[in-house]
Amino acid sequence: MAFLDALLNGLTLGGMYALVAMGLTLQYGVARIMNLSYGEFLIAAAFAAFWLFQVQAINPLLALVLVVPVAFGANWLIYQIMLHPLVKRSRDRGELEVNSILATFGLLFVIQGLVLLLFGSNYFSYTYISNVFIIAGSPIAADRLLAVGVAVVLGTALYLLLVRTRPGTALRAVSVDPRAAQLAGIDVRAASAMAFALGGGLVAASGVLVSMFTTFNASMGVVFTMKALIVVIMGGAGHLMGALAAGLILGLVESFVAVYVAPGLTLAATFALFLIVLLIRPTGMMGRAGA
């Protein structure tokens, strides 16, 4: 059943893309930082999970508990030390975007270089659970299913945090209008740092989850950054549900193109899709007009 295989594969892939993109949509939508080194954090977390599993025999779910807080802290520091000066220096949002692209671009090389130095350029993978489930005649790996399950839990938790709590509401207010949020008594710098750090925590979690079922190497971060950016822009910056929908669509398109057209053309399909969405709705599927 090629169709069902492609569908299941696409849904699990899309779920992972959605999770990866949710962190970026927080960083870009709330903190207004276009983070090009985003995928490098994912790869760094994947390598951390690999190291913890192979050398320290700590299972990936436990690794999640260790890696995510570290990534959260590191990203909070990066925002406060490295990125906030850029926010102060930039006159408007466009200038901040360019400045943050340039700065995080440098960071991309530093992190990638460090991972290369520590692990080399080989491909890595490990086997955590080797069971395979059969769903309606289609096989699906258990570790993949587990990763998607955790992704769903994390995504739901983030959604509730943003929609049901006061700090979450403050983050959403900053995403709508930083200046008005300040007038309402919200500490914009603290909220932005929090959003950036949350995004960093999420991408680290995605990295650990991704490492459970794919092979990865030190220079793959850019691919994840690209896909996350495409999902974020397609879904509308700062829009969680948009990221979810766009992530699923992207995963399904990739999976079906790989099965029915040619595996070598998945990226081409991704870009074609991206371009079509942007030409029809430049602010993304769920973005506000003029945002």
Binding site: M226, I233, L265, L267, F271, L279, P282
Partner: peptide, 24 residues
């Protein structure tokens, strides 16, 4: 017609896209 960051991202991927198509 894409402004600012959208253009950066697309150009960022354009080279990869062409590379993949040529490779394929």
């Amino acid at each position: 017609r894409l402004r600012g960051v959208y253009f950066v991202i697309f150009s960022f991927g354009l080279a990869e896209l062409i590379r993949q198509v040529v490779n394929w």
